[in-house]
Nucleic acid binder design. Sequence first.
DNA 1: TATGCGTAGT
Length: 693
Amino acid sequence: MKQNLKVIGEHTNHIFKQNTQITQLGKSGQIHEAVKLFSEMTRKNTVTYNSMISALNKNGKFNDARHLFDNMPRRNLVSWNTMIAGYLHSDRIDEAYRLFVKMPKRDRFSWTLMISYFTRKGELEKARELFDLFPHKRDVAFWNVMIRGYGEKGRIVEARRLFDEMPLRVVVSWNLMLSCYTRNGEMRLGREFFEGMALRDVVSWNLMVDGFIEVGDLDSAWEYFEKTPYPNVVSWVTMLCGLARSGKILEARRLFDQMQNKNVVSWNAMISAYVKDYQIEEAARLFSDMPNRDSFSWTTMIDGYVHVGQLDKARELLNQMPYKDIAAQTAMLSGYIKNKRMDEACQVFNEIAARDIVCWNTMIAGYSQMGRMDKALDLFKEMKDKDLVTWNTMIIGYAQIGEMEEAVKIFNGMKIKNVVSWNSLITGFLQNGLSMDALTSFKLMAHEGITPDHSTFACSLSACANLAALQVGKQMHNKVLKSGHLNDLFVGNALITMYAKCGRILCAQLIFDDLDEVDVISWNSLITGYALNGYGKQGVQLFEQMVSKGRAGMLSEAFEVVRGLKIRANAGIWGALLAACKTRGNLKLGKIAAEQLSEFEPRKTSNFVLLANMQAEAGSWDEVENTRLSMKYTEAEKQPGCSWIEVRHQLHCFQSNMPMQPETAEVYSNLKTLTSQISNLDCVSKSSLIDNL
DNA sequence: TATGCGTAGT
């Protein structure tokens, strides 16, 4: 008897182990191994089936999961809930709902599953409907789910109404309500609520600290952190991240060193801080020193290596990772894409079994950046669950290959747009020489109640610069002042360019002088501005000043800065360096700069010309010929001729091969009249006057 | 309540 029980016990234990293994394999994407184990198992119980269904769902094999669900010998509540969760995860909401209705019995989990699905999707009305239908006695947790849903969508007033209606509140309810304020940047209301809280714990204090950090009020964050009665590891990590985000990496490290009970998250947060500060070696040191690592640690390090361009190191780490994590794989994918190693990118993409939105979006962005919008569109269509980033990526992709009509089509097809969607559209117009449309979009955006951010201002100011629209530019400057984005470097630089291109070089200089911090682009914008306004000498002087001051003192050093670390290189920076190389006659580095520049501006004639001139000065005539040929080969083209005039704050733009509009026709007819009148007056043209001087 | 991967800009 005793012996028999022991045998049964061993069997149960064995099944239990195998069930757990199936779950583990499912979680780590090893679905084939899970299936193999499942089919090899001679004894299975309901949990075995449930584990297998869950594993199949996690790996996107919903139909197989459903097949198993339909054919399993005995189903319990967990089987139903697992299957519903799978459908919800894959957005097959109708099937999930059908199962939910068909269930012989529903528990709190089933209800919570459906409600949290709807709250996550932002369909709060549907969630609320279920909330009101809930047949059991609503316990506190149930109210909490709904409040969280409202809070996550920024619907603070409704959350508060529900909170006030609650028959019973526990500390979690108070904290959830507090988080509605702190997570939505409402720190004034948050503070008020916090002061009046009937129940408070360390979470409440942490929420306040985190809220202040989110709105950039580091002083208040610190104040609350210090006042926290019994800070826990979360308090410390929150504060540490706040310091790191404000660039106070040394203070963050000091806090880290002071921490008594470090856990894996503390280590991860510190590593992440170093990675974001490009201190990859310090990050690697911590990574190797830490007592144990989780998937966050690995992903952070992999992403860190990707950040500094050490892709092979990143790959090596990914290979070493015990359980491949989708975030880590996506970091690697993104690294290959950034470096245009598409074959390897595809390889990683194919290795990922259960792809999530981020992973799909990364791949779509990859194809977009390669100009392969056909491939991007295929993926876009194939994707079931799209988010704002997906749509925005498509807009950018079409804009980049000059297909603004398609970009606009995508934009118009969006049900919800965010500030990035608008910025992408504006940038698209800008990049395609449609600065007027860019400015029109800026107006429309305000009309739809979207608040422009620093990026919007930077682009729109750039549009003003392109059009030399001084009045509009000044208005924009005014808006920037009111918005508080004046200290943003992107905006500051855009203002410099705007004033410079509008012929107000002194204003540009004033903006430059007022900036707290300047970078290579600020210098470049100002220098270009002086040159543009005919002050070539001042421009060169300024450049000398830059070379003697900042990082560009040594050209090769400047290259190091640009190539990897502190500054994200773009056309402007490479252009500045190319120009610097030209001045200093450094052909070797000039060639590299030109090469990099051609990645950004493959068809810009002036880059080719600059390089050719350098080669000519160095007497390398063969190379001059090569450059000339590649210019021809890449069909380098000049910008279409464009002129504009501002009359009574209204901008009128004239472009060669621009379609005729009623206004244009009128202008031309007036011009004809004027021309004939002038010729009757026997005038001398300005140009011939200059010729005679 | 804390940590990782994806979109825009000078």
